[in-house]
Design a binder for these strands. Sequence first.
DNA 1: ACATTGTTGACCAAACTGGTCAACAACGAG
DNA 2: CTCGTTGTTGACCAGTTTGGTCAACAATGT
Lengths: 139, 139
Amino acid sequence: MKFSSKVRYGTRALLELALRWGEGPVPLKDIARRQQIPLPYLEHLICPLVQAGIVKSARGTRGGVMLLKPPGEIILSEVIDLLEGPGNAAEYGDKALECRDYSAAYDVWDEVTEQVNRVFESITLQSLVERQQLKSRVG
Amino acid sequence: MKFSSKVRYGTRALLELALRWGEGPVPLKDIARRQQIPLPYLEHLICPLVQAGIVKSARGTRGGVMLLKPPGEIILSEVIDLLEGPGNAAEYGDKALECRDYSAAYDVWDEVTEQVNRVFESITLQSLVERQQLKSRVG
DNA sequence: ACATTGTTGACCAAACTGGTCAACAACGAG
DNA sequence: CTCGTTGTTGACCAGTTTGGTCAACAATGT
């Protein structure tokens, strides 16, 4: 129930890309500056996103990074899975399996996880962008 | 978005207590055996729960530990907060505050956190017990 | 007085986090 | 071609957290 800064930074990076959707490649340096993410760290964050095919990268002089899908089609749970690795929630040890005779909370955590994931699945980059724009317009 | 084993173990311990609601003090040794939690570890888990007044402890020969409130009145978010310490979700660094001029994902994580917390607030120990009994009756 | 049980704090190895550095690979412009 | 730009990769590292143990102590019932 705690988000790693990997996820937080990564989401911010993606949010930046979502805001610039359609502009073509955005250099990592750019993202790093605007979202205050250490460049070398950002590089590591982007990597799995590129490999997963959610982001496309282009090297060279006018290279950079851009979303492959429109922001409305990228859901938060997907992003979290990619950045946090698989098994994003309860992973009870192996011992737990032994005491099935009596009561235990195994599947209970599955249930909780499932409900939380439903929340993540209902949030898209697009919705984050909109919410963000709403807030910045007020402030 | 990952649950520490502190939270998982702790919830299992509380679930055990919920199942035994009304039986009087349950020894830690008992809980540890039934829920496969290392006893010395469990002791540390129980501590904050006792201090928070959600659990009552009794020492001595027939001592043990018991819930103070009925399981239906103990919500998951409460348990998580107690076991995980405050700030159960996104805690973006201080640097983030500096780049408010352009876009950023600060409040976005607040939003996500809020939604997740709503889920935790809707789950009580009682509901976990019921779900658990349902599953074990089938299996 | 004694065994039982909870409380507390010190301690520890291992994993994870957040982050840096440096070498390398591909691409565009001149 | 070659040079600078930009992404890719992997090694590395200090600090924190996690998961867990041990031992001393405090309270309670018998």
